[in-house]
Nucleic acid binder design. Structure first.
Length: 583
RNA sequence: GUCCCGGUAGCUCAGUCGGAUAGAGCACCAGAUUCCUAAUCUGGGGGUCAGAGGUUCAAAUCCUCUUCGGGACGCCA
């Protein structure tokens, strides 16, 4: 709807050469905005003030000449100059009626842009290590990433959602060793569990069900033979590395791999199921192991080597990250020959571009902010513009119950996993609250509010607007009445009540909100918009009956709320929240 | 120490390329409610936008400094 006004201003400017010159660098669309106050009309442009300096004229004078040059439009009722030089536009009812009609005609597609050719976007999110179930912090990454994905898709971008599985490296060996030890314990081998191991119950559960038929259970003495002391007497890292070596020796490298691979795959599948239940799905699950196997890591290192970006020091191979703005150089190959996570990471991002994606978005936990500089450095060094990569950091989540902050450490075990959270508040509320704040803000997640089924709870308030409209149509049927949609369209002029105007105005904002949310990766705009919209609808509902005797008025009112229902449903769908017919 | 994020009403938060009188929900106060769902409604009070300086016709918004809070700074992943 904004473009109606922008186009008008643009055309007027074309008639005014002396202003057009000054306005050349100005995006007209950016001067037009919704008014905060209905007494200022529907849209206002601040273009006169923006041009004042370049045109060397006072703003009100400029505004006057623009207004004089405005063409006639049946979509504009009135134009006024106000304040220091704002041009206020009052749109005609017709303009709003057309918008309602479009919403009903397009239905689920309303607000969506047609698919663009590009840029092709790779959206990577969650990517939690497969060492255990997702916790509540990952839930926010999942909800935020999925919603940003939906927003980008709605904005017409070809977008692929990807989960990078860190299934290589030492963490996986520790996982394998943890499961192995639990398996030993189940088989009656009396060995202590390492301090540095994964202690969750899921490890024991896996140990009980994984396939180990070919493996011979060693004796406790063999396992403990030659192990250094564990913490607190010794170092837990040294201890667990020795334990991994022992496991490989006793079970054979293949035997240990067998346990490790089953364990991580079992966890990965569990994560995938968890996310699927949460309505979060991926196009690709990209394995770090496959990155090594395909030779991408070596390939990337070779490219860097050739470009002279690597050097040796203290037996390790270093990447000159400082040349690319990082604070210090980083190791890519350790003294012991093992490639670091950073090496995989360079290769992974290189691979994303090699697969043909033009624009990369990584959604990471805030604790990863230290990686931003070096991942960019890696891309730059590989010959790709790091400008084509965007990193969105998501801040932490703090759960509250009964007004008190909850402890969420794994050790306390009080409340930890995404599954527990979903079970307690439901998927809809979880998806909603996770994206209700900007990603760069800490999120206080109040379990009591999220669970409450009242209008205090924005999720229910919005969903209820949708259900309430469905209910009105059910009652219409019960009264053996029918909605004549085309008559409703023809009678929209009858909608003159303040609440009707307000609702129409809110509805017409939807495409603009969607665009804003997508461009800024900011689902919270959509969240707040939907709450406002639901409020406008409920206010209307409380002020006026829809199922009235006057058939023309009734059809028109039903037309309006049917459009509202479409938009509430579309918005909720983008957030991954259900739009129920009944509550 | 360096870097990242933040500080807006009693509480939780909007306010996104600077724009007109800084908004919402909760809480609080006063009313209403035989009515399509009480899974309420109407109205009201409440602000040094952390502080100071700067840029601008215009600053919660941009810049600098100060202060407070959270986080990150490994040959871990």
């Amino acid at each position: 709807m904004k473009h109606i006004v922008a186009t008008l201003v643009q055309d007027a400017l074309a008639e005014l050469p002396e202003l057009a010159e000054a306005a050349r660098k100005l995006a007209i669309e950016s001067t037009v905005e919704r008014t905060r106050d209905a007494s200022h009309g529907d849209f206002a442009s601040n273009i006169a003030m923006r041009l004042a300096k370049a045109a060397r004229k006072n703003p009100r004078e400029i505004a006057a000449s623009i207004v004089a040059a405005l063409g006639d439009s049946h979509e504009i009722d009135k134009v006024e100059i106000a304040g220091p030089g704002f041009i206020n536009f009052y749109l005609s009812p017709t303009a709003f009626h057309v918008e309602l009609e479009t919403a009903l005609r397009k239905g689920a597609d309303y607000g969506r842009q047609p698919l663009k050719e590009g840029p092709k976007i790779l959206l990577e999110f969650v990517s939690a290590n497969p060492t255990g179930p997702l916790h509540v912090g990952h839930g926010r990454l999942a909800a935020f990433g999925a919603t940003v994905g939906n927003l980008l898709a709605a904005a017409g971008y070809p977008v692929i959602r990807e989960y990078y599985v860190n299934d290589a490296g030492r963490q996986m060996d520790i996982l394998g060793a943890s499961v192995w030890l639990r398996w030993l314990q189940i088989n009656g081998v009396d060995v202590p569990f390492p301090q540095g191991g994964y202690r969750g119950d899921y490890i024991r559960d896996m140990a009980g069900i994984i396939d180990t038929v070919d493996l011979v259970v060693p004796s406790a003495a063999d396992v403990l033979d030659g192990l250094p002391p564990d913490a607190p007497d010794g170092d837990k890292e040294t201890y667990i590395d020795a334990l991994i070596a022992t496991a490989k020796k006793l079970q054979g490298s293949d035997g240990f791999d067998h346990i490790r691979q089953q364990s991580l795959e079992s966890i990965r599948v569990d994560i995938e199921d968890d996310l699927k239940e949460f309505g979060v799905t991926f196009d690709n699950w990209y394995s770090e192991q496959s990155l090594a196997k395909s030779g991408r890591i070596d390939e990337a290192l070779t490219v860097l080597e050739k470009r002279g970006i690597l050097y040796k020091k203290d037996g390790a191979t270093w990447f000159r990250a400082t040349d690319y703005g990082d604070e210090k150089d980083r190791v890519v190959v350790r003294e012991n020959g093992a490639k670091t996570y950073f090496a995989s990471d360079i290769a992974y991002h290189f691979d994303k571009r090699e697969r043909g994606f033009d624009y990369l978005i990584d959604i990471l936990g805030a604790d990863h902010h230290g990686y931003m500089a070096r991942v960019r450095a890696g891309l730059d060094a590989m010959g790709y513009e790091s400008d084509d990569m965007e990193i969105e950091l998501v801040q932490f989540v703090i759960l509250y119950r009964g007004g008190k902050k909850m402890q969420m450490s794994t050790r306390s075990g009080e409340f930890d996993t995404l599954r527990q959270l979903r079970a307690e508040v439901g998927n809809d509320a979880a998806r909603f609250y996770y994206v209700s704040r900007s990603n760069d803000q800490h999120l206080d997640f109040d379990l009591d509010v999220a669970k409450s089924q009242s209008s205090d709870n924005p999720v229910y308030y919005i969903q209820y607007a949708h259900a309430r409209i469905a209910s009105v149509f059910r009652q219409l049927a019960e009264k053996s009445l029918q909605w004549n949609q085309s008559n409703g369209r023809a009678q929209l002029e009858l909608l003159v009540q303040a609440q009707e105007k307000a609702l129409m105005t809110s509805l017409s904002r939807y495409p603009e909100v969607l665009e804003l949310s997508a461009n800024n990766r900011a689902p919270q705009h959509l969240v707040h918009y939907l709450r406002d919209l639901a409020n406008d609808f409920h206010t209307y509902y409380n002020a006026h009956a829809f199922i009235v005797d006057d058939a023309d008025l009734r059809d028109a009112r039903l037309y309006l709320i049917a459009a509202a229902q479409v938009i509430v449903a579309n918005g909720l769908t983008i957030l991954g929240v259900s739009a129920p017919e009944k509550m």
